[in-house]
Amino acid sequence: MTVREGKIDSFALVEVTGRVNSENSETLKDFLQELGKREQQVLIDCSALEYISSSGLGALLMLLKLIQNKGGILRLFSLSPRIAEVFEISGFDKFFPIFSSLEAARRADT
């Protein structure tokens, strides 16, 4: 797993790649916790996310609560069909705004 952070418009742009499992999800959680405290608007690029288990979903859920509690925006984009299915089974697709591309995610409210 790798996590990279950049900036686009007023959004923090976070790319999570590879496999997020219960062995490395704490690293992701620590990163997202720090991000969630300082950022108001976040886009997460899932195009190279190959795998995520419940512990990784938990890290994303924590970030969503942090962002929503302060009225911010969190959007995910470019989920593979396999990852999208994990979100659906978990019921997380109802909580996370999910978009097909970076363009769709950044222009969702224009």
């Binding site: 979903l57 859920l61 089974i89």
Partner: peptide
């Protein structure tokens, strides 16, 4: 069983693992 219809504030990660196993 995990209540996947629960509101965001009530959603916890506990129980999600076995929920996934049941469905996969």
């Amino acid at each position: 069983a995990l209540d996947v219809t629960a509101a965001l504030a009530e959603r916890r990660v506990g129980g999600l693992g076995i929920h996934l196993v049941r469905h996969l």
